[in-house]
Amino acid sequence: MSSLLKLHPVSAVFGAFLCLNQSCTDSSAVEKITVTGSSTLAPLVADMAGLFEAKNPGIRIDVQAGGSSRGILDASSSLADIGMTSRNLKAGENGLTSHRIALDGIALIVHSQNPVSDLSHDQVISIFTGKTEFWNEGNDRKIVVVNKAEGRGTLEVFLKHFELDSADIDADLIVGENQQAIKTVSGNPLAIGYVSIGAAEYEAANGTPIRLLAVDGVTATSKTVAEGTYPISRPLLLVTKGHAVPAGLTGRFVEFCQSTAVHELIGSHLYVPVRE
């Protein structure tokens, strides 16, 4: 909190100046927390915040997108009250408590013209490391490997699952967000990529020409993720500083995000609610 307090005098002066021109609500009466981090999670948590604000008048929850690492950084430096991350905490990231609010699977996707529908663990590794270069025996359909950019939550989960280093991957194209990966694969019959399972399911169901590949015979669906049978999945987390469930508004909001009240919302954002 100390860094927020340090900023206060300047913003107070500026705020007072701005109040001259507008109906200035008494900001001291409004309890406010800031949530920053994963761009994957931000739309979901922003909606959760909206719901929470509607139920609890007089509070404000500011949600800012900016990546998992930033969420973790902001939470541990107290720049934000809560961080959002779409991957597990790494070795050096100490002093934080994580709260699981939902699950997400990572699906391998290809163009729907591609006859392949199932890959084994080793085949995936072979393709992404460039050892398997062609889709067919005739060696005329060269595989286009679509990888995610360094640091993305999906990349880290993918690497961890297949026990690869980012230097091992022989990428032909690199993309950022999920939608970019989906549009890239749907525009290229030779491409293979990996994205958030809910997004892929949604797009495939709505006519985008992509297919979700089964991995080691397990089909990639939100259902298999919820059942725990689909092998590549990740938790979507809120992280807070310290080792206990935080007190006050922060704690209440974290609790709310883990309650059954938001399960429908999680589903509408194409993620899998955590059921105990």
């Binding site: 761009s39 997108a65 900016g66 998992s68 690492s69 360094e150 640091g151 032909d172 194209l173």
Partner: peptide, 20 residues
């Protein structure tokens, strides 16, 4: 394919930890 500097910053900045 190529990768310009701005693309690199946009792709990685939000996800970069201290040294990176």
């Amino acid at each position: 394919p190529i990768r310009p500097a701005t693309a690199t910053i946009a792709l990685e900045m939000s996800y970069a930890t201290a040294g990176h």
